[in-house]
Design a protein around this nucleic acid. Structure first.
Lengths: 273, 273
DNA sequence: CGAAACCTTGACCGATGTCAAGATATGTGG
DNA sequence: CCACATATCTTGACATCGGTCAAGGTTTCG
């Protein structure tokens, strides 16, 4: 599983805002007037890239090289970042918004593989070496994505073999996540999946207070992320709130008792008991 | 999905020539597995490695280095190669047998991610850099696996950056496969999955002759690979043979009309129509 | 304000899993 | 080679989850 906390903080992060202590070069390279491509500053890119695990300890100069080649892509709601079998031009980092990475089944249904949120990376770099992208990617919300061209990236990791290792690790993580999804799907009920999703969304383990969760999208999209129909999600929400485990108000869900909710995972859903 | 032909030839390939005492499981496994390597000829390993895509165009000397560090591991039926969250010692290449790569759900059910057969590689190398293996791996049949230690491997791809790229591609392929599985699971019926599996098992596309397929395992294991219960598989076999699409005889399945079988994929199963 | 998208709820159905009972196959010791 | 034990396979009856269809309520946004 993704580091449970990572997901949360990532989702909550807003760019650019967070001061980066390691980067003492800050003051000397004072903010340049917003210029460059689409008014996007290279420094902001550097700054952003530094946050990604994969670049965490890359040398400043190397990072700058990548940032230089990087391109910012803005996507309107519903716009496609790429399609299945496309040869991706490089790796993507989500700066803002949500990218729905999914397959389309023969019957037209969408199978969501992952919702990439701010701070997450879609490493479709290897795709270029063989087949194309394994799925489609579409913005669920207006989104911004930073693209680092494959060429740049490959060149860079010839110089920094460690970067390749990082990327391998990242792909590995994606494999873990896919295996998790597969397991979820096969062995867990929709309700259980939903509860797990909820608990992943920033519930402080220790706290027993109520927690508010704002799904940043429609319920339909959430249902998609969970791999069920919206009718089913609606029923699950109904049932859980009937049991007093949470309260639903529009697109805000209030978990009234995180402990009890967590308990249902072990005990199974409190089926009319 | 793996190139349909590749899978076939790989499965059919036989790798003679590695001297190995007749595997009376008892005594041979009683000795320390690491020592099995002593009676193992490096050249045979080289020869074998060369077959794997990832090593296809590696320089002879480099390949020899890897072969030198390689270890042969022999697994009895049911023996585990590794468990979930283990830190794998390196990458694995299946030389003989079948390795069931799977998750175990909370309720104890097994969720098969992939059956690795002779010639396939389990690249758990990245795992070491972060988390452990994403799943368990167990020999379905008596199997032999070649292990290349991570250290050796990493060292080597510092010298051959291309090797890293190859590995990335290999992980990418695994991602594709997982995404395929996920899609299969969610959107296709068990019968459809089975037919696809059948057609992948070495059916010559052009030929319209009958084809015999020997499942090298029990039907129960096949059901597991398809993600269904054996009762369900039994019913599927019954139905397909009722429709004259195939004949089942013990562990041998004869496809009487590959064309018609393939047609069912597009047309849907000939449900009592 | 009105259209379009979104959400809820009920009735119904189909695909698979579960349980149970037996049939067949495989292997082992005598 | 037989006989028994064990594992595997088949088949039926039944339960359940989640999908589909339909109808109507609610929110959002131009």
């Amino acid at each position: 599983m993704t580091h449970p906390s990572a997901r949360k903080s990532v989702a909550a992060r807003s760019f650019p805002a967070i001061p980066h202590r390691a980067n003492s070069a800050g003051p000397s390279r004072a903010r340049k007037p917003a210029e460059a491509i689409s008014g996007f500053r290279q420094e902001a890119v550097c700054y952003f890239l530094r946050r990604a695990d994969i670049f965490a300890d890359l040398a400043e100069a190397d990072l700058r090289d990548l940032a230089e080649a990087a391109v910012l892509k803005t996507l309107g709601k519903g716009a496609y970042l790429f399609h299945k079998n496309d040869v991706a031009p490089g790796i993507y980092l989500v700066r803002r918004g949500i990218i729905n990475f999914h397959r389309v089944a023969v019957d037209g249904r969408e199978i969501v593989i992952h919702f990439y949120r701010a701070g997450e990376m879609l490493a479709e770099i290897a795709a270029g070496a063989g087949e194309g992208c394994p799925a489609d990617a579409r913005a669920v919300l207006p989104s911004e994505v930073i693209v680092i061209p494959r060429r740049t990236f490959l060149a860079k990791f010839r110089q920094c073999p460690d970067l390749a290792l990082r990327l391998l690790t990242s792909l590995d993580l994606q494999i873990h996540r896919l295996a998790d999804s597969l397991e979820d799907f096969v062995s867990r009920s929709a309700a259980t999946r939903f509860v797990q999703w909820l608990l992943r969304q920033g519930v402080d383990e220790s706290s027993h207070d109520t927690v508010e969760i704002h799904l940043g999208t429609t319920k339909r999209a959430l249902a998609g992320e969970l791999g069920v129909r919206q009718e089913t999600l609606s029923r699950i929400l109904r049932e859980l709130s009937d049991f007093g485990l949470l309260r639903v108000c529009g697109r805000k869900i209030t978990i009234t008792n995180p402990g009890a909710l967590r308990a249902t995972l072990a005990a199974g859903l409190p089926a009319a008991a």
